[in-house]
Write a protein that binds this DNA or RNA. Structure first.
Length: 893
DNA sequence: TACTATCCGTT
DNA sequence: GACGTACGGATAGTAT
């Protein structure tokens, strides 16, 4: 019995793996603690995780050629029709289990595993039927079930894997193993079970008869039929008990017989396993937040034909000799890969180029002669040679670091992969190759960090990767086009790469002294507030930065009322602390809030100060492949979350200054861009009129909602309407609105009702956009950028609700992102056309910052105004505010 | 060292 | 019973 999990001997015709879905999911559920397995949104995943792990192990160990997972359907079966109390003693399934069943089916779908079910029949009956069909087809059959009834299926061709504990410890039942454990042959097991009874099925047995007696009788009388025939002769107390319960035994035997002759929808030959879909596996692993499991599932992905064709072309011969001459003679289109890093102390060290189906060139850039240097630099800077890269902006920087320009970028497979599915995570070359071509690079080659001492290997690696990029482009370009995003890709995202590269390269000048003074100040305030906080609790120097220790102080020691629940207890966030301070005022709370404020500030300042480069400027890194809505993101440091609301925030912005040799900073931002997009997309006449009128939007809307003259709109009314308007674009509920405005839910609901009665087009649009997305599976911006929202059809309420908010927000936020990106291209083109030396240095979602050269301020203001306005042709005007100053704060006013 | 949880800054 | 999008990033605490 210890020979569990050893692969069965494979027959020449293959192996059929049959799994009882629910019984194994249930075992997984109870085998793994539910509290340790959930997504960040609280969806429990322990059963999905355990089940999937088990399945992956089985698939890997046994390499089944045919595969099916059978499910019980809700509702009764022919057995409960026969006996309503059948399985009647089972406890109510835990509420965390049910929602995981559709998730398991999603995993199976991604893996390409057939799920089978049949109304009025149990999964076991399907297993029994498929076991017979598989056996008749000459397949070796493996049944995996936690239901003992399936023991009857075991024979020379059918082995049962039965969970002993959890789902990772499976016992292998062959006929001999069954005989050894139960003392009967597998086909006699139901006879035995009929006599002994099955508590889990609510089938009582013969009192006083256990497995030993049952086995003995079966041995003596040859089976249940013989036993019942000779019932009168069965001796002893047990014999009498048997005679008293003959009807029950007959019923048991009738019910525990599994049907092997069901009509099945899927013939057994269609259970042949053809592999899963890599993209779908990624998608489901993303959704369920599976990390380690992803790597175990991906090997089951089948490459499709297109991908395989592309992989073929990626099988390259890499050549280094004569590479420079060969490459510089190319007129494109070519795939280019650059190894190296941008930045102050590193540059490009290897270049790979691929343009033919089977030859790629690799060049070691570290040992080039002057002639080669010149030729290569010219070729890279030649805009008439079209080039495709993966992460072109990084390559741009790496080449720039050695003084070379990169031009002619016509494609970026990283961006293409992002457009195809922006919700994915991880767009590094090796990840995208894995995802779309099923290719696995070895980690050294994939990372591009090859040892320079290995002679030509860096060059060869670069050549190989260039070939892979070429293959990727061949697969991804049609996918982008298929999704209607060819123009968005070629005319917006790709040209933007160079614009962003130049912005990052330029950076923003910083007044170090100002920053330093601010830092000291904030540090001092934080320290003083900390002392106040310690004093307020009797001098105990708890770590104020530790939510855990704060919880202990607030809720245990001070006995304060509980705040909102979080995973680790009760929240100590700012809004909770404010609430607490109203309910139970305490000097500790005030001091803690002040400390939080000051230390956050000093932390931000410290991070910024540390990010200043030797050139006295901060160079952020923008990404086009992070925010699923299409917004840019900024990191190292993030310049898109610099404080602005507080006086201290203003002072931080004052430290961002115009650089030497330049004149001013000009900042231009769209006014109410999201509401304008809402007006355009919804076509609501009231909202369009509001913008056409050109007066204060929230005042206008407020006057309509509250039925007063615009002058009669109080600041209170205005702020309520403003919160309402913006909340709409985020899928705000009346509860959320109430909480934000400090109103009763009823009042918030009334406000929403009034709003919608005046702006019905908005309500209709919001409703329609979700419906359309549910139908199509994706949302779209004005410019055709897609975001897929599969969870709109999820049976899980929470997932569905989140998906609805995503569907509401994505077209609005995404269209705004498209607009400002278009504006950036327009601004860049105008600056160049007009021969100006001013340059864009920052984008913050609805705001552009330009550093102007002397004498160009007026021209730049005009360009910003015009290009931002002209970025889209909407049914409402795009209003732009422009400001100028020697620092970011001043310009922003 | 790597990862999770919490908190908080922006739009 | 929860309940507003999209991010980046610091810190604490825990797992490896």
């Amino acid at each position: 019995m210890e020979d569990r999990l050893a692969p069965v001997s494979e027959s020449t015709k293959g192996t059929l793996l049959l799994v009882d879905g629910l019984s194994m999911a249930f075992r997984a559920f109870f085998g793994l603690p539910v509290e340790n397995f959930a997504t960040s949104t609280g969806v429990p995943t322990n059963a999905v995780y355990g089940f999937t792990t088990m399945l992956a192990t089985l698939m890997k160990d046994h390499e089944p050629t045919h595969l099916a997972v059978a499910f019980d359907l809700p509702g009764g079966t022919f057995r409960t029709e026969r006996l309503p109390s059948y399985k009647g003693t089972r406890d109510e399934t835990p509420p965390e289990f049910e929602p995981q069943v559709p998730l398991i089916r999603e995993v199976l779908g991604a893996l390409g595993v057939t799920a089978v079910d049949k109304p009025r029949y149990e999964a076991d009956d399907l297993l029994a039927t498929y076991a017979r069909l598989g056996r008749e087809a000459g397949l070796r059959v493996l049944v995996v079930s936690g239901d003992r009834d399936t023991i009857q299926l075991v024979n020379d061709d059918v082995t049962l894997l039965y969970p002993r504990k959890g789902v990772s410890d499976l016992v292998r039942f062959t006929p001999d193993a069954v005989q050894e454990k139960y003392g009967v042959r597998p086909e006699q097991y139901p006879d035995m079970a009929a006599l002994v009874g099955e508590t889990s099925d609510n089938l009582p047995g013969v009192p006083g008869v256990g497995p030993k007696t049952a086995a003995k009788w079966i041995g003596v009388y040859g089976g249940l039929a013989g036993i019942l025939e000779s019932a009168e002769d069965v001796p002893g107390k047990a014999g009498q008990s048997l005679r008293d319960h003959v009807d029950q035994v007959r019923l048991n035997r009738e019910l525990n017989h599994l049907l092997t002759d069901l009509e099945v929808e899927v013939p057994v030959e269609d259970l042949e396993y053809a592999g899963g879909d890599a993209a779908a596996i990624h998608e489901v692993c993303d959704a369920l937040q599976f990390r380690t499991l992803r790597d175990r599932l991906l090997p089951f992905a089948a490459g499709d034909d297109a991908a395989e064709a592309a992989v073929e072309t990626a099988a390259v011969v890499v050549r280094s000799e004569g590479a420079v001459a060969a490459v510089t003679a190319m007129t494109g289109p070519v795939a280019v890969h650059v190894d190296g890093r941008g930045g102050a102390d590193a540059d490009a060290w290897a270049l790979g180029v691929a343009d033919a189906a089977d030859v790629a060139w690799g060049i070691d850039l570290t040992g080039l002669g002057p002639a080669d240097e010149k030729a290569l630099a010219a070729w890279l800077a030649d805009a008439s040679v079209p080039k495709v890269l993966h992460g072109a902006k990084d390559a741009w920087h790496a080449l720039q670091a050695r003084g070379w320009d990169l031009a002619g970028i016509v494609g970026d497979t990283q961006i293409a992969a992002f457009l195809v599915n922006p919700d994915q995570r991880g767009f590094e070359l090796d990840q995208i190759l894995q995802r779309h071509l099923g290719l696995t690079l070895d980690s050294a080659a994939a990372s591009g960090e090859l040892d320079l001492g290995l002679g030509g290997s860096a060059a060869e690696g670069a050549g190989e990767r260039a070939a892979h990029v070429r293959a990727l482009a061949a697969v991804l370009d049609p996918m982008v086009a298929e999704r209607g995003m060819a123009d968005l890709y070629a005319d917006l995202e790709i040209p933007l790469v160079s614009v962003l590269a130049r912005m990052e390269h330029a950076g923003m000048a910083v007044d170090r002294e100002k920053l330093g003074a601010l830092s000291d100040e904030a540090r001092g305030r934080a320290d003083r507030a900390a002392e106040d906080a310690y004093a307020a609790i009797g001098g105990d120097r708890v770590n104020l930065g530790s939510p855990k220790q704060l919880q202990e102080v607030l809720f245990d020691r001070l006995g304060m009322p509980k705040t909102k629940k979080i995973k680790t207890g009760y929240s100590t966030d700012a809004s909770s602390l404010h609430d607490l301070n109203e309910k139970a005022p305490h000097p500790f709370l005030t001091a803690l809030l002040a400390h939080r404020d000051a230390s956050k500030l000093s932390q931000i300042i410290e991070t910024l100060a540390q990010a200043v480069q030797p050139d006295g400027r901060i160079h952020t890194t923008f990404s086009q492949v992070v925010a699923a809505t299409g917004r840019l993101s900024s990191k190292d440091p993030n310049l898109q979350n610099i404080p602005i609301r507080t006086p201290e925030g203003h002072r931080i912005r004052e430290a961002f200054v115009v650089g030497e040799g330049f004149d001013t900073l000009v900042t231009a931002d769209y006014s109410q861009i999201e509401m304008r997009i809402m007006a355009h997309l919804s076509g609501d006449s009231g909202l369009i009129e509001a913008f056409a009128a050109g007066e204060d939007l929230h005042r206008f809307v407020g006057s309509r909602v509250f039925g007063v003259a615009p002058e009669g709109v109080t600041p209170e009314m205005r702020s309520q309407v403003k919160a309402m308007s913006y909340g709409l674009a985020y899928g705000l509920s009346s509860f959320g609105l109430a909480r934000q405005l400090g109103l009763p839910v009823g009042a918030a609901q009334a406000l929403m009702d009034d709003y919608f009665s005046r702006f019905g087009g908005v309500r209709d649009y919001l409703h329609a956009v979700v419906e359309q997305a549910r139908k199509d599976g994706y949302t779209e911006t004005i410019f055709g950028r897609r975001r897929y929202v599969p969870d709109l059809t999820s049976t899980n309420r929470q997932r569905r609700d989140i998906a609805e908010r995503v569907a509401l927000n994505a077209p609005i936020q995404g269209s705004a992102a498209d607009l400002i990106k278009r504006a950036m291209l327009g601004v860049e083109a105008r600056l160049k056309d007009e021969g100006l030396a001013s340059r864009q240095v920052l984008q913050v979602h609805d705001e552009l910052v330009v550093e102007t050269a002397p004498g160009e301020r007026a021209a730049v203001e005009t360009i910003l105004r015009e290009e931002m306005r002209a970025a889209g042709d909407l049914s409402v005007p795009l209003d732009v505010n422009v400001g100028t100053g020697g620092d970011w704060r001043t310009a922003g006013h």
